[in-house]
Simulated scan of single mutants.
Amino acid sequence: MPFSYIKTHLQQRADNALLRQRQLISHSTGREITVNTQQYLNFASNDYLGFAADVIQHDTGIALGSNSSPLVTGYGIEQHQLETYLCELMGFEAAMLFNSGFSANNSVLKALFHDKKTAQESATFHDKLNHASLIDGGLHSQAAMIRFNHNDMQHLQSRLEKSSAKHKLIISEGVFSMDGDQAPLAKLKELAKQHNAWLMIDDAHGFGVFGNQGLGTCETIKPDLLVITFGKALASSGACVLASKELVDYMQQFNRDYIYSTGLSPLITNLTRQRIKQIVGDVGALRRNRLADNIDHFKKQALAHKIAVMPSMSAIQPIVLGCAEQTLEAANKLKEKGIWLTAIRPPTVPFNTARLRITLSAAHTHDDINRLVSELKAIL
């Protein structure tokens, strides 16, 4: 029977407690979520600063759709203003907007090493815990793909020393999405310089949250290629690649995702620029302080109740249970208590590392966190 494997593979996922299913959300903020008319405390959102509940006033004359590729008629004043603003803030020559962080990461790597002759002299060096978008980009580029142990600079150095590639690109995340820890950016930058390599950082979970101005983990240490996304701390959507003008010009020639996709919405672009101004202003500073206080409170409460969390100082606080079935059961029990938490299971994370991925927001109160810890203690 044609395509009979579909049913078989779905059943295998279900049997192994790995079946993914969408949930219909009618309302969601950094603190609360409503699913099928039931309200929960939300500890699964990437709305780290609690901006999702805020309304931004906007000019109703701004178009919703850009209606075309940025290389046809889809690059308007709103997109140009956001790119220019980000270049000034972050200290880069040029920028280009994408509809998602996945598209940005994936397509940049494919485009950079699209030429077979050049790719034969090229290699990408990936942290083993890099996001799927980076891994997919590496797999689909024509350069050699070399992986190093998570945040292990000695292993990376060894890999770089053994490589004879002329064009080397080191790739990591500013804040790792499933573990919540940070990359040693200064050391990565130093190794890149020593080995005549470029450094690419995906700072999706760092931008808006880290840095004195909220400009992320790369606020002071600049990689050659920086990807930031707008769907986390900014509570918007889309992404931006920041680099040299020469590299952005190159991407405009060979990045198929950019060339053949409709440009980012002018309305979303304008709202995103307003939100970034809040991030770098007093509002952002206040919310980062509140988030930091919530992270500290959670970690102290978890320690006091002997709940083992990973060594993360970010808003991402995972509790590794190992077994996918037990993790899913724990998440379902928490839902029965009115707490929404996601059970992260393979292949999103390595086998035997299934986890409850707790994400904290500036919107949470200490009472919310106390309730979470109390229910975790009872269930775990």
Rank of each mutant, 00 (worst) to 15 (best):
A378F: 12
I369N: 04
N352Y: 15
L334K: 01
N370E: 00
A378H: 02
H364S: 05
A362P: 04
P350M: 06
H366Q: 14
E336C: 15
C323I: 15
F351T: 15
D367A: 15
L341N: 00
L356M: 09
F351P: 13
A324M: 15
A362E: 09
E375I: 02
A343G: 09
T365V: 07
R355D: 00
H366P: 08
E329P: 01
H366M: 10
A331C: 04
D368A: 09
A331V: 04
E329V: 08
L328T: 11
E375Y: 00
G338E: 11
K337F: 07
Q326K: 12
T359R: 13
T353W: 03
I379Y: 00
T342N: 15
D367N: 14
T348W: 06
V373N: 08
D367F: 01
L360C: 15
L341H: 08
T359C: 12
L341M: 10
V349K: 14
A363R: 04
A378S: 11
P350A: 12
T365C: 10
P346Q: 08
L360K: 13
I358G: 03
L328W: 06
K337M: 04
P350I: 11
S361I: 13
S361L: 11
W340I: 13
W340A: 12
P346H: 10
E375F: 01
G338S: 13
N370W: 01
H364T: 03
L328H: 07
T327Q: 10
A362R: 02
A378M: 01
D367L: 09
T348Q: 11
A354W: 01
L334I: 01
T359Y: 10
